[in-house]
């Protein structure tokens, strides 16, 4: 039985944050919630966690309404990181574990294991404020999973991490999935989603525009991408003459083409051979998630993020 979000709506004053949002997450999957800032991802997560109540709609996990589930069902990593800065790492973690009913001895042992895994065992008795942002984020991740939750919900878990820590966190995700946990996270980084997620939902302006397994979502776009390279490297103007084919990118030594629904990608290869081109590469691929996102939302996710950051910085003296 999966996690089901069923036509959930939530309004904050004049803003309709969620508009009949529906999607479902299979148990044991890693699920990506994609959307620009303000699309409603955080609100959606808070409603699933039952710290906000929807105006209408319902949420269930394993067939039980989220309002009836014990709090320890969920682990949560909020987007705005926050811990008790003046407390030692071990005490903060034991405190949150205690709130979830984890015995102190068990919590202490598990904290030790996770600190090892994240390569920061020497920070155990330091105050949280002495740690770097990246390391605080790892502590916060540990705080979210110490009580062994069935579902782990994380809001932008990778933001602000350096590549090494991103890798450590990805490994932790896979570890949790191998333990049979269900993971839901939001992000702008499409590569991470491609790498980790079995299924996704793309949210825009409070509505789910598409959801499902990554492969189904890509296929549902009804078009495929062809990457073609020839020894002639003649610029490939001829391909645009072909019906249903659009040149979307001119790479260093290859062409990336989009093939509309109904057209056969192999006709491009046939046409190339007919022209006497010597083909060195021919590849039929599903569109990237980035392309899927642009197709559905009308603009790239990352650009939206930069615009948002620039916008929020405008009020600050620079």
């Amino acid at each position: 039985m999966s996690l089901v979000v069923d036509s959930v709506s939530k309004r904050f004053g004049p803003v309709l944050a969620l508009d009949a949002t529906s999607f479902s997450v299979e148990p044991g999957h890693i699920f990506g919630l994609l959307g620009a800032n303000g699309a409603g991802k955080t609100t959606c997560m808070r409603i699933v966690l039952d710290i906000l109540r929807p105006d209408s709609g319902s949420i269930s996990w394993q067939g039980r309404a989220n309002t009836d589930l014990p709090r320890r069902t969920w682990g949560y990593l909020p987007e705005e990181r926050g811990l008790y800065l003046r407390m030692p790492v071990i005490e903060v973690l034991r405190f949150f574990a205690a709130l979830y009913g984890v015995p102190a001895a068990q919590a202490t042992a598990e904290v030790g294991e996770w600190l090892e895994r994240f390569r920061i065992p020497h920070y155990r008795d330091r105050r949280v404020e002495e740690l770097s942002k990246g390391n605080q984020q790892k502590i916060q991740f540990i705080a979210a999973i110490l009580h062994d939750p069935e579902v782990l919900i994380m809001d932008e878990p990778f933001s602000g991490l350096d590549p090494v820590n991103v890798q450590l966190l990805k490994e932790a995700f896979l570890e949790m999935r191998d333990r049979g946990k269900t993971l839901i996270f939001s992000t702008h980084q499409m590569e991470t989603v491609e790498e980790l997620c079995e299924s996704i939902a793309i949210v825009d302006a409070g509505r789910v525009v598409v959801s499902g397994t990554v492969r189904d979502v890509k296929r549902a776009m009804g078009r495929q991408v062809v990457r073609l390279a020839t020894e002639e490297a003649d610029g490939g103007d001829w391909v645009e003459q072909l019906p249903g084919v659009t040149l979307i990118r001119r790479g260093e030594d290859y062409l990336e083409l989009q093939v509309r629904d109904g057209a056969d990608p192999r006709s491009i290869l046939a046409a190339a051979i007919a022209r006497g081109e010597r083909v060195t590469r021919f590849e039929i691929a599903d569109p990237s998630l980035e392309e899927v996102f642009i197709e559905h939302v009308g603009r790239p996710a990352a650009v939206e993020e930069e615009r948002h950051l620039a916008g929020s910085g405008r009020g600050v003296d620079r």
Binding site: R71, P78, R81, G82, L83, F96, L99, A144
Partner: peptide, 13 residues
């Protein structure tokens, strides 16, 4: 203001 709150209300009523 330190944003611990969001963790707290997830963990306890």
């Amino acid at each position: 203001s330190s944003r611990v709150m969001e963790l707290l209300i997830t963990a306890a009523t």
